[in-house]
Every structure is written in C-alpha cells, then in structure tokens.
Design a protein around this nucleic acid. Sequence first.
DNA 1: TTGAGTGTTGTCGA
DNA 2: ATCGACAACACTCA
Length: 272
Amino acid sequence: MPELPEVEAVKNGLSRLVCGKTIKDVQVKWRNIIVGDAEKFQLELIGQTIESFSRRGKFIIFQLSDYELISHLRMEGKYMFFQTEVPDNAHNHIFLEFSDGSTLVYNDVRKFGRMQLVPKGMALMQANIAPLGPEPFSSSFDVDFLFDKLSHTKGLIKPALLSQKIVVGLGNIYVDESLWQAKIMPTRLANTLSYHECQELYHAIVDVLSLAVKLGGSTIRTYKNALGEAGKFQQELHVYGLSGQPCARCATLIEKIKVAGRGTHFCPHCQK
DNA sequence: TTGAGTGTTGTCGA
DNA sequence: ATCGACAACACTCA
C-alpha cells in the first residue's frame, strides 16, 4: 500500500494498539517475508516486549526490549489487531501472539512486504536504510539541499524522487501530486530544474505530504491503517488516477503516460 | 481468456 | 550513475 503518510498512520495505529504488550508466540506462515532465518526470528521474538514505534522513510521500526523489528509493507502489507480469535484469511502471514491473548497479524496479499529482526540500535545501520535521503519534515531537507542534489542527478525528476535517495517517503501517488503542485513535468531532466522550481518543488512535497499525514493517507485500493480505518487524502488528489478529468487549475484534461515503468499522471498544460 | 496494470524495491546487465 | 527489464506475488479489469 503505502507511502510515507500511510506508513505514518499505520505506525500511529500500532503504537496505540500494542505498545507495552509482550510477545508470547510467533507464527510464520510465509517465510520469504522474513529477512534471514525464520526460526531464529521466531525464537528471538518470543518474550520481547514492544516499547515503542518509530518510522524511517517507509520503514516501520518496532522498538523491543532487546531488538528492533524492521517492517516494510511494500505494495499491500497491512497490520490487523485482534483482541481474541483471529478470523481465517488466506493472506495472513505472520502472527504475533501476546501474553494477554490478543494478536497482531501481518496480512499481505502479494507477499512483497519484509520483516527483519536486528539487535537494538542496529536498524538505521542496515544496508537498505542507511543510504536513505533525509526525512521530508526534517531540517536537513531544504531548498538548497534539494537544488544541490538535483543539479548533480542525471535522469528524470520522477525516478529521482522515487529513489528515496534525495528525500524519503514519496511513492507513485505523492510524486505525481507534488510535481503537479510544483508545475513540473515528470519527464524533466532533474538537473534542468531552476532554483525557483526547486523552491516550488520543496514546498509542494512538504505541503502534499503533511496534508496527507493529517488526513491519514490515501485509500486508493485496499489500504487501511492498523485500526481498520481508511485514509481521506484521496479526496484531495489532483492528478493521480484522474486521467481524462479536467485539471483543477486550467481544465486541460489530465494525461497518463509511463515514466520509468510507472503510471504517471500530469497536466500537459500547467506542468513544464 | 489473456494480458495489462497495481501504492515497492531489490538485482542484474547494458 | 542510470535505465530498463525483471523478479517477488495475487488480484482486478478490459
């Protein structure tokens, strides 16, 4: 499912639901979701208490007594919480059973999501997390940083923003929305953006993501947060999924093309 | 019925 | 460094 706003919503839901709980048992039904040895994962997790949750980019990090559990939902991963019995579902893959009888289930139709258990303090050093760009709401992400990074980037602006190396958290929806708001064509070469355009883009990214976080993310297909709630940002979309509809700024019809293998929505009149 | 498309990100070869 | 193709999977829609 998720980009940064959805991951943030899931993290907040988990925080409310399972903080303080102690893991009594673990079931792994689909081993490929676990990075590393699934038996070791299971044994090490038993007896751990969930202390808190954090997020880095699109990764959720469970802070446990002695470990950190890194979780990435990829396309369709979901968490579901049950006080007692867990209803049957073919896509429930990982079960964390707590000492109070409740259960946290990881459900993932496409099985693309990943979980990795690492020693406490090691999550941010992992090979897939260490190279990530700054958080979009952090002070290290600003206009000068964005301009500097983009001016040294070959290739197109959209794949550059999707790479998570310049800034984290944008996926296919919020990249298209940010570029629309900044009036920049997704196919522009990244190193041709002027400083002024980087200003526009910086504000677009921060505005789009912060509004989406405030609205609990977007529910496009199946996304639900850990409390089973849908997001509300889909009502604020201007281009994503709206090809053939009039642009909210100029009424030109929104077009859809393929950029770097991804469906890409834009206004051919406003976006330069 | 078949094939294209789907909110992600690894890897591999050019 | 970057891109495209492909892989990991299941499901929906034309």
